[in-house]
Each structure stands twice: as structure tokens, then as C-alpha cells.
């Protein structure tokens, strides 16, 4: 691709991730790199509630002449995803036979945890990397975050992915490194250079497809039994626990004493215990479901 004449149509690269991961930084690196090689580059991004962990995407198109800044559905040559669920969300933008690069790390958004019942399944993407890699043919799924952790800085995960991306494009590694150096903080230049090499060598050594399954926390692992005991002798019926309980499990009975009316709904958040001015409520948590009985009473 160093030779301009080789490219006639614009190359479409779609970079997606979650706010704070460095999607914009990655796209800036790629855009500047293409620019220094004399291509026309158009970049378009959305980073709405990025700081709150919302989705971020960036379209990059480069070539001799680029008209539109956005990539139509099913036309992306390369999809680079910094997070697994975002990769699934944007998979339909990848063209058949396009290159798919994804980090398998999971950032579970609050929306996926709306069922607050104990042991409830999270509403997160259920596709495993193996399934997807099998379908896209030309795909890489790697645990870039884990690799970055071994390098000592989890924030270089995006540079590792840039290393993988560099093997799919035809620019020289040195020019990639030179551009990356311009965007990272000076004291992390060395780590980033290592990370970039790590990404490149991973791609060279990888037996493709190489699915890396990162385990989502299973329902069993968060299954706890909570038992709420209410000392009705101490309870003065101030109503605080009843009104403050997010699940509305408590109520006052006719004697103005707090009672647990929905033991099954209790998530064990301890708000009632902490806010009880009379120390009448005590919550016991047990890691497994050995005891069945949950109920009120002294």
C-alpha cells in the first residue's frame, strides 16, 4: 500500500470500543499515518457519553480520493474492536471477507445487569470468539488487555491491537511507531513500542483462527444466600428501611415493626442495615445456597 497507485478505491477501517479505551487515539494514529503517506483521509466519529462507558466508534476512510466520511453497512474492510460486545454490535458493517480484529475483554455495561436478582444472568453478548472467528474467516480475537497487563500497563491494549492492525495494512512498522510516539505520553513510549511489537509478533505466531475465550462470570459464582434478621424488639418503626430499600422488600406491619415481605427479592445491598438507626437489622451473606430459610423474626 506504500505505492499509491495500488489503491484505487478508498480503504475503510472501522474502529469501535467503549469510552475511555482510546478509540479516538487509535483512529488519530491511523489517520495521521495515512496522511503522512500522502493519502486523503476522512475520519468521522461519535463519542457521545464516552466518559460514562458508552459506545464509541470512528470511521476512517483513506485513499487517493475520498468523498464520504462514513462507511456504509457491509463495506468496512477492517473492523477493529477494542471490546467484545462492541465488536458484535458492529459486525454487520464488516464486508464479506473483511478483516476482523477484536479484543476479547468484556466491559459489561450497567444496562446488561438490569435484572438484579441474585445469580441472574447478565444480558451480555453470548457469542464466543470461536464462533465468530469461524464465521468471519479472516479474523483475529486476542486477549489484548491481558497481554497489556503482563506488560505492566493495561492502557497499552489499544497499541497491541494497532500492532495487529499493522499486519493487515501495508505501512512499514517504523512509520507506525513514529506516529504512535506522537500520541502517547512521553514516559510510556517504550511500553507502547513493546506493545506494538507484541501485537505484531502475536499475529505472526498465531495459529489462525485462534479463539481466546474470556470467561464471563457465571451465575453460580455470584450466587449468594442472604438472610435478613430483624430484631423487632429494637425496631422503632421509623420507616427508613422500608422507604430506602431499592427492591421494596420490607414493610411495616400493624405493630409498626419492619418485616421482610419479599425475601426472594433481597439482593443483599445492606442499605437497610446501614441506615437502621436502631441496629435492628442484620444481614448475613453466605456464598452458596446451603440454607433455604430466609425470613423475618428475632
Amino acid at each position: 500500500m506504500n505505492d499509491k497507485s495500488k489503491i484505487e478505491k478508498p480503504v475503510n477501517v472501522l474502529i469501535v470500543g467503549v469510552g475511555g479505551q482510546g478509540v479516538i487515539m487509535v483512529s488519530k494514529v491511523l489517520a495521521l499515518l495515512c496522511q503522512t503517506h500522502g493519502f486523503e483521509v476522512k475520519q468521522s466519529e461519535v463519542h457521545g457519553m464516552a466518559k460514562r462507558g458508552g459506545g464509541v466508534f470512528s470511521h476512517i476512510r483513506f485513499g487517493p480520493k475520498v468523498w464520504s466520511p462514513t462507511i456504509p453497512k457491509g463495506k468496512a474492510d477492517i473492523l477493529l474492536a477494542l471490546e467484545w460486545a462492541e465488536a458484535m454490535r458492529w459486525l454487520d458493517h464488516l464486508k464479506p471477507g473483511g478483516t476482523f480484529i477484536a479484543d476479547t475483554q468484556r466491559i459489561v455495561p450497567p444496562f446488561a445487569c438490569r435484572n438484579r436478582k441474585r445469580g441472574a444472568e447478565r444480558n451480555y453478548s453470548r457469542e464466543t470468539p470461536a464462533e465468530i472467528i469461524d464465521k468471519v474467516k479472516n479474523g483475529y480475537a486476542l486477549d489484548a488487555e491481558g497481554m497489556a497487563m503482563t506488560l505492566g500497563n493495561r492502557r497499552v491494549a489499544n497499541t497491541i491491537l494497532l500492532g495487529v492492525l499493522s499486519t493487515a495494512l501495508d505501512f512499514s512498522p517504523e512509520s507506525w511507531q513514529a506516529v504512535i510516539e506522537k500520541f502517547v505520553p512521553p514516559h510510556t513510549i517504550e511500553t507502547n513500542a513493546q506493545a506494538f511489537q507484541e501485537g505484531r509478533s502475536w499475529t505472526a505466531n498465531a495459529v489462525k483462527p485462534l479463539p481466546v475465550v474470556s470467561e464471563a462470570p457465571s451465575a453460580e459464582s455470584i450466587d449468594i444466600t442472604t438472610e435478613l434478621t430483624i430484631n423487632t424488639v429494637w425496631c422503632k418503626g421509623c420507616d427508613i428501611c422500608v422507604k430506602m430499600c431499592p427492591e421494596r422488600c420490607l414493610a411495616l406491619n400493624e405493630d409498626q415493626e419492619a418485616v421482610l415481605i419479599h425475601p426472594d427479592k433481597c439482593t443483599g445491598c445492606r442499605i437497610c442495615e446501614w441506615l437502621c438507626p436502631d441496629y435492628a437489622i442484620k444481614l448475613h451473606k453466605r456464598p452458596n445456597s446451603q440454607t433455604e430459610g430466609t425470613g423475618a423474626g428475632v
Partner: peptide, 14 residues
């Protein structure tokens, strides 16, 4: 000494 003498809902307990 419990239950304590504070009124229902008194913040001092917390």
C-alpha cells in the same frame, strides 16, 4: 441498654 432511647429515625444511630 438496648433498645436505645433515641427517637425513631434519629441520625445519631447511623
Amino acid at each position: 441498654l438496648f433498645p436505645h432511647f433515641l427517637c425513631p429515625g434519629c441520625g445519631h444511630g447511623m
